[in-house]
Simulated assay, not measured.
Amino acid sequence: MNLALFDLDHTLLPLDSDHEWGEFLARTGAVEADSFRQANDAWFAHYQAGTLDPYKYLEFAFGILSGFPRARLDEMHRQFMAEVVQPAILPQAVALVQKHLADGDLVAIVTATNHFVTKPIAEQFGKVHLIAAMPELDAAGNLTGKLLGTPTFGPGKITHTEAWLEQLGHDLSRFERSYFYSDSQNDIPLLERVTHPVATNPNAKLLAHAQARGWPVLDLFDGHAQ
């Protein structure tokens, strides 16, 4: 059995689900649009630049979510899936994940975006595991606004992936083949740890790194490899 890990945003999806969720909240009037969009765009710019403080960002994101009862959040997320996410899921992305599943690989999506936003998205790709930033929940299932544990960002993806594998009785270094598909320089730490890193729809910083390291580059959204 081999291991196949996937980033989510701009890797399997041609969008950033975290940022788009914020846009959805603003567009539907769930939050005050102008001030929220300004903050949402600023956090996204930090992510793209590699300067994001994941603790502060998740405090912001979970703080917003904690203002809604869970039933309302779930209702909004169903609308978000129907209007934003599902139309953006491309068959070639699903096919890539399904190929690894058909080969008998252990498959997980490893994303810095939080579990509330990404769990329904991950389910669209089949029976895959999900490693994501976990919100603290109260007894009724409502989000408290706090992060449970540590962020799944940058080197944190290694920490969380290794802990998940350990729970399953596996070790990252013992897989004959371990794949990680990602678009971002933020994921270089985990890309460096697998046997088969694949720069997938890479941004400029990751593309330069991948070319210097001789990694394969996959343009998944156009359906061909370079």
Rank of each mutant, 00 (worst) to 15 (best):
A4Y: 09
F6E: 05
H10W: 01
L12I: 03
H19T: 08
W21E: 02
G22A: 13
F24M: 11
G29T: 15
F36E: 11
R37H: 12
A39M: 15
A39S: 15
N40V: 08
N40T: 09
D41N: 15
A42M: 14
W43E: 01
A45C: 09
H46C: 13
Q48Y: 02
A49Q: 14
L52N: 02
L52D: 08
P54H: 11
Y55N: 12
K56G: 12
Y57P: 01
L58F: 04
E59P: 08
E59M: 03
F60V: 07
F62A: 10
G67H: 08
P69F: 10
R70K: 12
R70V: 12
D74Q: 14
M76A: 10
R78Q: 15
R78C: 11
Q79M: 13
V84F: 05
V85W: 00
Q86H: 10
P87T: 07
P87Y: 08
A88H: 00
V94Q: 08
L96S: 05
Q98F: 12
K99Y: 09
K99A: 12
K99I: 00
L101G: 04
A102C: 04
A102P: 04
D103W: 08
D103R: 15
V107I: 10
A108Y: 00
A112C: 06
T113F: 00
N114F: 06
F116N: 02
V117K: 05
T118I: 04
P120V: 14
I121T: 10
Q124P: 06
G126K: 02
H129F: 13
H129E: 14
I131Q: 03
I131Y: 05
I131P: 05
A132P: 02
L137A: 09
A140L: 13
N142S: 12
G145N: 00
T150F: 05
T150A: 14
P151L: 08
P151I: 10
F153C: 04
G154N: 06
P155Y: 11
P155N: 11
G156D: 08
T159Y: 07
E162F: 00
W164A: 01
L165V: 03
E166W: 04
Q167C: 12
R174H: 07
R174L: 12
Y179R: 05
Y181P: 00
Y181I: 08
Y181H: 06
S182Q: 02
S182E: 06
S182F: 04
D183E: 09
D183L: 06
S184L: 07
Q185G: 15
Q185T: 00
D187H: 03
D187R: 01
P189F: 05
L190N: 01
L191F: 01
E192F: 07
E192D: 10
R193N: 01
V194Y: 09
P197F: 02
V198Q: 03
T200W: 02
T200H: 02
N203Q: 09
N203P: 07
K205Y: 09
K205F: 09
K205C: 04
L207H: 14
A208I: 06
H209P: 01
H209Q: 03
G214Y: 00
F221P: 09
H224D: 14
A225C: 14
A225D: 13
Q226T: 15
